[in-house]
Amino acid sequence: MSHKQIYYSDKYDDEEFEYRHVMLPKDIAKLVPKTHLMSESEWRNLGVQQSQGWVHYMIHEPEPHILLFRRPLPKKPKK
């Protein structure tokens, strides 16, 4: 599979999560399941490479070739 064609967005966040999206080329996108969110082993098997802790959290129906990921931000110590 062509890992060079996978595009990784910059990371962005809110108060709770860090987010990123990953755009897959058409040949890989056709392998994305339409019935469920992928486990880490499933998206890694497609060639997506990112650190541990990312969760495929949403399917964007109009653009199924874009995978939406998030992971919890580290808890800030209370002052």
Rank of each mutant, 00 (worst) to 15 (best):
P64R: 10
E61V: 08
V55Q: 14
E42D: 02
V22K: 01
Q50P: 01
Q5C: 13
I6D: 15
E42V: 04
E40L: 04
Q5P: 13
V48N: 00
R44C: 03
H3P: 15
I59P: 06
K78T: 13
Y7R: 14
D14P: 02
H60C: 12
K4V: 08
E16W: 10
L31F: 10
L68P: 02
K26Q: 12
S2D: 15
E18Y: 07
V48D: 05
R20D: 02
D13H: 14
L73G: 04
S2W: 15
E18D: 03
H56V: 00
R20A: 02
H56G: 03
L31C: 08
M58N: 08
E63K: 07
H56P: 00
S41M: 13
D14Y: 07
I59L: 13
I6L: 09
E42R: 00
Q5V: 11
L68M: 11
W43F: 05
F69G: 02
Y57V: 04
K78E: 13
V55F: 03
D10S: 12
L46S: 03
H60N: 15
L68V: 07
Y19R: 02
E18A: 06
R20T: 04
L67Y: 04
I28M: 14
E16Q: 14
F69Y: 00
S41R: 13
D14E: 07
K75C: 11
L37I: 05
P62G: 14
P62Q: 15
K78M: 13
I6R: 08
G53Q: 09
Y19A: 01
M58F: 04
R70C: 01
E40C: 06
K4D: 15
P62V: 13
W54I: 00
Q5W: 10
Y8R: 04
I28T: 09
L46P: 03
H21G: 04
E63F: 07
P72Q: 09
R20E: 02
H21Y: 14
Q49M: 09
A29W: 06
Y12H: 09
L68H: 11
L67F: 03
M58Y: 07
L46A: 00
P33Q: 00
S51V: 03
Y12F: 10
L67V: 05
P62S: 15
K26G: 09
V32Q: 00
K30T: 09
P74F: 09
D27I: 07
D10R: 11
W43E: 02
K76G: 11
Q49H: 12
P74E: 12
R20M: 13
P72D: 05
P77R: 12
L37N: 03
I6M: 11
L68A: 07
S2L: 12
P64I: 01
S51R: 05
M38D: 00
E63R: 06
H56W: 00
G47T: 00
S9P: 10
L73S: 09
L46W: 01
F69K: 06
P74S: 11
M58K: 15
H65C: 07
M58Q: 13
E18G: 01
R71D: 05
P25G: 09
Y12V: 04
N45H: 11
H21R: 15
P64D: 09
V48Y: 00
G53T: 11
E15N: 09
H36C: 00
K78F: 12
R71C: 02
L46C: 00
D14A: 05
N45G: 13
P64A: 07
S51C: 07
Y8K: 10
Y12P: 04
K4Q: 10
Y8G: 04
S2R: 15
W54L: 01
N45I: 09
H3M: 12
L46E: 00
G47Y: 06
L46V: 04
V48F: 04
R70M: 00
K76V: 11
E61G: 09
K34L: 10
Q49L: 06
D14T: 07
Q49W: 01
R44H: 09
K76W: 10
L73R: 11
F17V: 05
F17H: 10
G53A: 10
P25A: 04
Y8P: 06
I59V: 11
K34N: 08
K78P: 14
F69H: 00
E42I: 00
K30M: 09
V55P: 01
W43A: 02
P74I: 12
Q5M: 12
A29F: 07
L68Y: 15
H21N: 15
W43I: 06
P77C: 13
P33G: 03
M38G: 02
L37F: 00
L73F: 04
R70K: 09
Y12D: 08
L46T: 04
K34T: 13
M23H: 15
L31S: 07
K75V: 11
M38V: 02
D13Y: 15
Q50L: 15
K4F: 07
S41I: 10
V55A: 07
Q5E: 13
H65N: 12
V55W: 02
L73H: 09
